[in-house]
Every structure is written in structure tokens, then in C-alpha cells.
């Protein structure tokens, strides 16, 4: 490293004080300690920079390795640009794994409710997953509404899981919130659903009551397009 280059580098540390703090760790110390200028007193002198302007930069008298050099700045700047570039290239490679446009396009399903008898649960496919449509009996609705919230691991009133005036229709995603198995209807201690994989019990509102699952069966967004038609998604 030339003396001139060293002085220029020292100058950058003052012009851009932000680099003064961390640059020495990246090689300046080793560089300076190995250089023949270590500990040499420098005289203040005008310095010619590449832009052709003269400026008096050398107010620092000692070279103790604390000052970053121009080369350190270049290393860090190059490294930073390289890191940003690598991240920019990596993102498409990661994001291509996310659900693509054709998968997202299949996001809604329409179902005719008229053939579903009271007390019956039908399973329809929505976004590749099963959705349970339960036509609940009076007793089932009553059981769901009468359950005190303090008995629930994931407290949610039945009224928040069905639409007002349509209490007989419970529509939930048929995927156990534990590890994704499909629970079996009208089974378990609460006569709602029972997951055979790891033993989670759900009630007639699809709420978790017992077992390892942490949350209630998910209620998807849906709208009644008529009295007997529902659109899920």
C-alpha cells in the first residue's frame, strides 16, 4: 500500500464517520500493523485526490491502526453490494416455491346445500383440503351454545363460528389443527369430530376440547348466495 493511498483512506474515515467504527476490524488493523508505516508520524500535507481538487486532509498525526483505509471502504462497499445482489437473486428461487397463480385461482367452491339432511355432515374439497358442512340438529346446536367458554382451550362462542339465522349450518375446514389429519365426524367424547392420528376431540361447533391440537377447526370465509347455495372462499 502506498503512503498516498493510506492517507486517502484515512480521509474517508473522517468524511464518512460511519465507517470509522467497524472498518478496522475487517482488515485495517492487520494491514496497518504489517505495513512499514506502523507508528510513523505523518506530516500534514496537501493531498491530490482523483477529482483533481486539492484539499488539506491530514489533520491526524499518528497512524495507530484505528483509522480505516480507503481499501476497507471498498471491501465493505463491494461486500454490501454483493450481499444485496445475492439476496435479490435468492428471493425468486425461494418465492417460486410459494402457491402459484393457478393454485390461487382455484380459491373458491360453490356448494348446493339442499340435499344435506339434518344431522348429516358432508365433505367437499376446497383448495385441495376437505371442508366439512354439518347440518346440525337442534340438540347439537344447543350443546354447542350451552358450553361455557372457560371449558374451552381456544375460547370462542358458537355464535362466532356460524352465521346469524343460519345456526344449523356449521362450515369448517376439515383439517385437524394439530398435524393436519382429517378428523372423523360424529365421533369422540363430544360427538363432534375425533382425529384418529393423535387423539384430538372436537365438539359440535368444531372447537377443540381435548387432545394435542392447539386450536379450533378453522372456519373458512363463506357467503350464502341463496338459501340453499353457499360459496366457500
Amino acid at each position: 500500500m502506498t503512503l498516498e493511498a493510506f492517507n486517502r483512506g484515512a480521509a474517508i474515515g473522517r468524511i464518512l464517520p460511519i465507517f470509522a467504527g467497524f472498518a478496522p476490524r475487517i482488515g485495517a488493523t492487520a494491514d496497518v500493523q504489517a505495513s512499514p508505516f506502523r507508528g510513523v508520524l505523518l506530516e500534514a500535507r496537501p493531498l491530490r485526490r482523483d477529482d483533481g481538487k486539492d484539499r488539506n486532509l491530514a489533520t491526524t498525526k499518528t497512524m495507530n491502526g484505528e483509522q480505516p483505509t480507503r481499501r476497507d471502504f471498498l471491501y465493505i462497499a463491494t461486500g454490501a453490494v454483493g450481499a444485496v445482489g445475492a439476496a435479490a437473486v435468492a428471493w425468486p428461487l425461494v418465492h417460486q416455491m410459494n402457491p402459484d397463480a393457478s393454485v390461487q385461482a382455484l380459491a373458491s367452491t360453490e356448494v348446493d346445500l339442499s340435499p344435506i339432511a339434518e344431522g348429516q355432515i358432508v365433505t367437499v374439497k376446497w383448495r385441495g383440503k376437505p371442508v366439512f358442512i354439518s347440518h346440525r340438529t337442534k340438540a347439537e346446536i344447543q350443546a354447542a351454545e350451552a358450553t361455557p367458554l372457560r371449558d374451552l382451550p381456544d375460547p370462542q362462542p358458537d355464535s362466532a363460528r356460524v352465521q346469524k339465522g343460519k345456526e344449523q349450518w356449521l362450515i369448517v375446514v376439515g383439517v385437524c389443527t394439530h398435524l393436519g389429519c382429517v378428523p372423523l365426524g360424529h365421533q369422540g367424547d363430544y360427538k363432534g369430530w375425533f382425529c384418529p392420528c393423535h387423539g384430538s376431540h372436537y365438539d359440535t361447533s368444531g372447537r377443540i376440547r381435548k387432545g394435542p391440537a392447539p386450536a379450533n377447526l378453522v372456519v373458512p370465509s363463506y357467503t350464502f348466495t341463496s338459501d340453499t347455495m353457499v360459496r366457500i372462499g
Partner: peptide, 16 residues
């Protein structure tokens, strides 16, 4: 969802 490439285990999952 990133692992599946969808909302359930499906074609994108199998292929990757």
C-alpha cells in the same frame, strides 16, 4: 405453504 407450494400437500409438493 412455502413447503407445499399450495394450501395442502398436492402436485407442487410431490414434484419438488
Amino acid at each position: 405453504e412455502l413447503l407445499w407450494g399450495g394450501y395442502s400437500v398436492d402436485q407442487p409438493t410431490l414434484q419438488r
